[in-house]
Design a protein around this nucleic acid. Sequence first.
DNA 1: TTCTCATGTAACTGCATAAGTTACATGATC
DNA 2: GATCATGTAACTTATGCAGTTACATGAGAA
Lengths: 135, 135
Amino acid sequence: MTSAALSKVMDTNPVVIRRMLAGIRDAGYVRSDKGHGGGWTLACEMSQLSLRDIYDALGRPTVFAVGHRKESPDCLVEQAVNASLTAALDEAEAVLLARFADVSLDQIASDVQKRLRARKTQQRRRQGTGGCGHV
Amino acid sequence: MTSAALSKVMDTNPVVIRRMLAGIRDAGYVRSDKGHGGGWTLACEMSQLSLRDIYDALGRPTVFAVGHRKESPDCLVEQAVNASLTAALDEAEAVLLARFADVSLDQIASDVQKRLRARKTQQRRRQGTGGCGHV
DNA sequence: TTCTCATGTAACTGCATAAGTTACATGATC
DNA sequence: GATCATGTAACTTATGCAGTTACATGAGAA
């Protein structure tokens, strides 16, 4: 799939797609090819790729919107607050990353399949009965 | 303590202090008084006030810097990713808030005391021996 | 070889959010 | 009434991210 096609689907810009996928490619999870027939292809088994892997490949961006004002404040109160805050944040981050590690791409793919079936069933129901008229 | 004094200590602006403390005052944890001798005073026991209480009083700001692009996307893949992401984020947020609830202000206060003693010991050591000359 | 397609990347432009600032109103105390 | 302190609206940076433009590079087709 090309960056242009992906950007349309994701309602954004081809360059944004390339910037994002660059890290994932460098980690070896996808491949990019130039020229005719080029674009992006998956380079590993979906079952071997987790959300955690992608998070790492993206450069482990900051997880939290909250945090310290200073890294090493002189103020002892600020130091004490930072210590408590850091302990709590670290623990929460560990939980989050563990959960990310639990989710592989094939799980997401099968979830998509499930949603696809659900959508089709709903469409059939609406057409078959002529629709309830509410939706 | 006045907003002006607090802003100096925290290296910021009096108005920023007032904006922050406004929510905490509305929740009843601190009091503000105008005029001579006015300023901010604690309105409850430090042991009864946790980081979680303060987080709530501040309006429960967004915890995570990562998240969805859209709340209700048409794209089934995006829906599936959102579902996995939300589950993980919710779990991490629950852990974080639980940790916040575990930390009361008097714990932080005693941590400050501990740090104060440690700093004094270090200062005495430096002065007593004439100092090592490195710091 | 030349044309076209696709990625790679630098550089720039919004755009949203938070912090900081200014200005002035309100109320309490001396 | 003078002074001190908060309350708040309005404005000004500062920052980071998404989006965009422009062009270089490389691969394949004609």
